[in-house]
Amino acid sequence: MELFIKYPMALQLTRAHLEAIADHGARDYPSECCGVLLGNDTGLLKQVRELAAIRNLRQDQALAEELLPLAQPELESERNRFLMDPGELRRIEAEGRRRGLDIIGYYHSHPDHSAQPSEYDREHAWPWVSYVIMKIEAGRAGDYASWVLAEDRSRFESEPIDVVDVQAAPESA
């Protein structure tokens, strides 16, 4: 019999990381916020070491439209869409790499909407990376969940989250 265990098996982050995502979501409410999870893949876990907030380019409609046009602009805006500023993203990735940190995932908020990924999330998702979604209801943080795109792109799979108070030092350091 074959066992199907997927590695890394969980996303590990600290309470402080979750609070930072909640604060960012509340600050940008009713718009969606977005950011990057920087850390390492230990083989067993994706360990988040730092967060980096990224500007939601949907607030600059003309520029966002040039990079990634919306299918139904009358229904889509920064209230239910995010697009990360590609320049900021490249800078943060390069800075992270210099310190031995990779982009292991992304987070975004769902203002007044559940932490379930949308069809739009799935269509635009990249494999392997974690997608943490936090519900922000009436300006306050609600449920959160982490998701990973299935290999055939057909759906998101729920990813276990390991919330810790303090993280062990990186093994390789």
């Binding site: 889509e76 239910n80 697009l83 992304y106 990924p117 949308s118 739009y120 999330d121 635009h124």
Partner: peptide, 14 residues
């Protein structure tokens, strides 16, 4: 190869 990172919530819920 540079990924655009995008997503959002479902619309129409309001």
């Amino acid at each position: 190869i540079v990924p655009s990172i995008a997503g959002g919530a479902a619309f129409g819920y309001r």
